[in-house]
Design a protein around this nucleic acid. Structure first.
Length: 690
DNA sequence: CTAGGGTTAG
């Protein structure tokens, strides 16, 4: 046994409950012996008996007389019977508790209980800690019974330990019952309950307890706030809590601060989180991780990477959590090269599951399935998330068959698929036009895996049926949904309508989307294009008017490409790129070459009211075209050109990319907000459907 | 005796 686990003060004091009805408070006041040096502690442990007797034999104060007498009597009786004395039993009990010998300690507890004697409170706390670490609920309950036996009221801190234990064992009702019967509750008792309800995601309950606590006159401390913050129900709530934290000055606590940062981020206000962060005088790496994670999760990868830089400058080391967030930022920004650099650091942390999952996702989302695959293969531990990530990654990048095969391996491995896994599987089916497989998985998900189909599953099925041209069935399915169909669902149907040229249903879906998302410019433009295609100019004008009235602005198309650790952004109508002249020239030449091979620019995709030449010109400056040309100019001849863009790729750029990939014999990967396009000389992985 | 950071879909 380690010396460190010995009690700081080895007080093997015998506590005898006076049968004369005296109060249970122990009358002896022993000056705490100074903590012995490690070597001495070992000595002390080996001779606890003599220590005990000395201690109990030197009572102070007159009130102790009777106790002492009882004490002594008990001692003599015990010795004359040649059975172990109460002193010995308590001593043994104490020793077993500190040695974490649970079975023996429990046996000793039994004897103690029978003899109506008590050990000092700290001993019980040792025993309870032992129960906690072993998950010994039953034993803990016996300890509780003992502590409350014969009308005895245990110290509040002991009850707090018990409370915490029930909470950790997920026995909230039992914790609550114990809390209810406590005569005195301190901050710790309240905070334990609040933290319990927060963890159980019973946010109302947690907040209610905060109020009850305040009513009871107990002032929250930093522990309380850092727990209760996670339970807040919205920004209003959060601001109230924040201001009371400031009033009490507890905002200087790093725990409270990181909780504030997390919660502001969670409620979509990373700027406020940054404010809280920047006000901090001294922080630690966890607070850095909080703020970096906050931006990474709020799809502001740029700021996350900025902060990561600042973190390093401030001299903090990146750990697993930091790198996970950094990878997530790379994922969002499609920064494959930076992600690769992070990978080098990931290797330092041996097999961290979450970190590996983030790495895997980064490679998938950056379109490098080779790297994703090797990462996946090298992972020793895989959980549902690893499998789901890889399945979805394969499916999104156009490898549907491989995705479905991997799903079979997953089932064979014994990992239970989750809701999200099935989304990936159905996505794979819809992507590859595997109607029957998709319907099979959709129908059997409930019976095979106990997962109720949700919105996303219906969405995949709408896509599946829609692609196959079964628009009626798709609509029927939407009506069968338990949840209200959301904009994503209608957008899926709209996509199918465009491909199969069902104008009426397209207009119907577009209107549905607009009613759900009145500020999405893309939908207005889509609707206006549909009208334009069927020459309904009045309707086009009406849509334009509605857009103007509601102040909806179209986000300019933007494409990003990473070259030499730098990100080059091309924005429609922006000529600030230093090489823009050369790029434009090269693009013109390329278009010329393509035209000779039969390329006809598809002017339907121009959204402005332009005509002829002009129309074509504006089209040729779509940001992805510029990015492709820039990639050809600045990347190695063989290298894949990887582009990320903010809007869906238009049909003309799609044809363009396909042709370029073909004549230039190089792979082009374009990731738009929801689909991946891998262009090679065999065409596009999306199968020309998106 | 009570508290903080990271991963998969759309």
């Amino acid at each position: 046994m380690k010396a460190a686990s010995l009690p700081p003060r080895l007080k093997c004091i015998l506590l005898l409950l006076p049968s004369c009805g005296q109060s249970s408070s122990f009358p002896f006041k022993l000056p705490p012996p100074p903590p012995p040096p490690p070597l001495l502690r070992l000595l002390v442990r080996s001779r606890p008996y003599s220590l005990t007797v000395t201690a109990t034999a030197t009572p102070t104060g007159s009130a102790s007389e009777s106790c002492n007498m009882l004490n002594t009597t008990e001692y003599h009786n015990a010795t004359s019977n040649s059975s172990p004395s109460s002193i010995t039993i308590i001593d043994e009990f104490t020793r077993f508790c500190y040695q974490r010998d649970l079975p023996r300690a429990m046996k000793a507890l039994d004897s103690i209980q029978n003899r109506n004697v008590w050990a000092v409170p700290v001993t019980y706390s040792e025993l309870l800690k032992c129960c906690l670490s072993r998950g010994a609920v039953h034993q803990a309950r016996l300890v509780q019974k003992h502590l409350f036996s014969r009308g005895h009221q245990p110290e509040t801190f002991l009850v707090n330990i018990l409370l915490n234990m029930y909470v950790k064992f997920n026995l909230l009702d039992e914790a609550q019952a114990l809390f209810d019967q406590m005569p005195h509750r301190n901050v710790v008792s309240w905070t334990t309950m609040i933290a319990a309800y927060t963890t159980a995601m019973l946010n109302d309950k947690a907040l209610e307890f905060l109020i009850l606590m305040l009513r009871d006159g107990i002032r929250p401390n930093m522990f309380t706030y850092s727990s209760v913050l996670r339970a807040c129900q919205g920004l209003l709530n959060l601001r109230q809590l924040h201001s009371s934290i400031i009033k009490t000055g507890l905002d200087s606590d790093v725990f409270v601060r990181s909780a504030l940062i997390d919660i502001y981020s969670k409620w979509g206000e990373p700027r406020n989180a940054l404010h809280v962060f920047d006000e901090m005088v001294t922080g630690d790496s966890i607070v850095w991780n909080s703020i970096i994670g906050g931006f990474a999760q709020n799809t502001d990868g740029d700021e996350a990477l900025n902060l990561f830089k600042r973190m390093k400058q401030a001299g903090f080391m990146a750990d697993q959590a930091t790198l996970t967030s950094v990878l997530r930022a790379c994922t969002g920004l499609a920064l494959l090269e930076l992600g690769r650099q992070v990978h080098v650091h990931v290797i330092k942390f041996k097999q961290d599951l979450i970190l590996n999952n983030a790495l895997l996702d980064m490679y998938c989302k950056c379109g490098s399935l080779e790297d994703a695959n090797s990462t996946f293969t090298r992972m020793l531990d895989k959980d549902v998330i690893s499998w789901s990530t890889m399945i979805t990654g394969l499916a999104q990048n156009g490898f549907s068959r491989a995705a479905l095969e991997l799903f079979e391996s997953m089932k064979a491995s014994g990992t239970k698929p989750s809701y999200i896994t099935i989304v990936g599987v159905l996505f794979a089916c819809s992507h590859a036009g595997l109607v029957e497989d998709g319907q099979y998985y959709f129908r059997s998900m409930k019976t095979c895996f106990g997962i109720d189909p949700g919105r996303e599953h219906y969405g995949c099925m709408v896509d599946l049926l829609g692609r196959a041209g079964k628009l009626d069935e798709a609509v029927k399915l939407i009506h069968e949904m338990k949840d209200e169909p959301d904009a994503v669902t209608w957008r899926t149907l709209l996509g199918a309508c465009r491909v199969h040229r069902n104008t009426d249903l397209a207009i119907y879906s577009a209107k549905k989307i607009l009613s759900l998302e009145p500020n999405n410019a893309g939908t207005y433009i889509l609707l206006s294009n549909i009208y334009a295609n069927s020459q309904r100019w009045e309707d086009v004008a009406e849509v334009r008017m509605a857009m103007r009235d509601r102040g909806v602005r179209k986000e300019p198309g933007c494409s990003w490409i990473e070259v030499n650790k730098q990100i080059h952004a091309f924005i429609l109508g922006d000529n600030s790129h230093p090489q823009i002249v050369a790029i434009s020239m090269k693009l013109k030449q390329l278009i010329w070459r393509l035209k000779e091979l039969g390329y006809v620019p598809q002017t339907d995709f121009v959204l402005q009211d332009l005509e002829g030449e002009q129309k074509e010109d504006s089209l040729s400056y779509h940001s992805e075209k510029l990015a492709i040309v820039f990639g050809m100019m600045s990347l190695q001849k063989e290298g894949t050109i990887r582009i990320r863009k903010n809007l869906r790729i238009c049909g003309d750029c799609h044809v363009f990319a396909k042709l370029v990939a073909n004549i230039e014999r190089r792979n082009i990967v374009i990731r738009d907000p929801i689909r991946y396009h891998h262009f090679s000389n065999e065409g596009c992985s999306c199968g020309d459907y998106w």
